[in-house]
């Protein structure tokens, strides 16, 4: 794909916007449609686009497979871990009220935490699956 300059440049321009949009979807989830899951997918889509255009090798340099796999695992741990934190603070599992003095603030913190967990997992898993498929055969340009 060395000669597909338009594609490469276009991708380079697009990716930051996609990432930004993902972040918007993540943090605007409280107000409009969206949340960790969608954001994670969009994040992953940006990354996959990069890998498709610039080659898996470069994608691996950006984020080694190990890190991606770890993302998938860590996200779940963040989510479940939030539940343990609420238990440690005297509430029941995933009772965000105890996370702050004001219950509704607690809810906010809790939601941010678990949405982060979802984001990390979904991103990690999507990219990991893509790596796994791509890894079966050379997808490099």
């Amino acid at each position: 794909m060395d000669d597909l300059v338009v594609l490469r440049v276009g991708t380079k321009i697009l990716i930051p916007f996609i990432l930004l949009f993902a972040l918007y979807v993540q943090f605007h989830g409280d107000y409009g449609p969206g949340g960790g899951f969608q954001a994670g997918v969009i994040f992953a889509a940006a990354y996959v686009l990069y890998a498709l255009v610039f080659g898996i090798g470069n994608a691996l340099r950006v984020m080694p497979a190990k890190v991606v796999y770890a993302c998938g695992a860590v996200g779940v741990m963040i989510f479940v871990g939030t539940g343990f934190v609420t238990m440690g603070l005297g509430g029941v599992f995933l009772d965000y009220n105890v996370l702050a003095h004001e219950p509704s603030h607690g809810q906010h913190y809790g939601i941010i935490a678990v949405e982060l967990g979802v984001l990390v997992t979904v991103f990690g898993v999507m990219v990991a699956i893509f790596y796994a498929f791509a890894g079966r055969r050379r997808l490099d340009p």
Binding site: A70, A73, V74, V76, M77, V80, F84, F93
Partner: peptide
């Protein structure tokens, strides 16, 4: 009092850990 949920969430926390180690 948390035992009902702990039977599930402790393994659920450990599953990704097993993948991580």
């Amino acid at each position: 009092q948390h035992l009902p949920v702990l039977i599930v969430v402790v393994p659920l926390l450990l599953a990704p850990l097993a993948a991580l180690v």
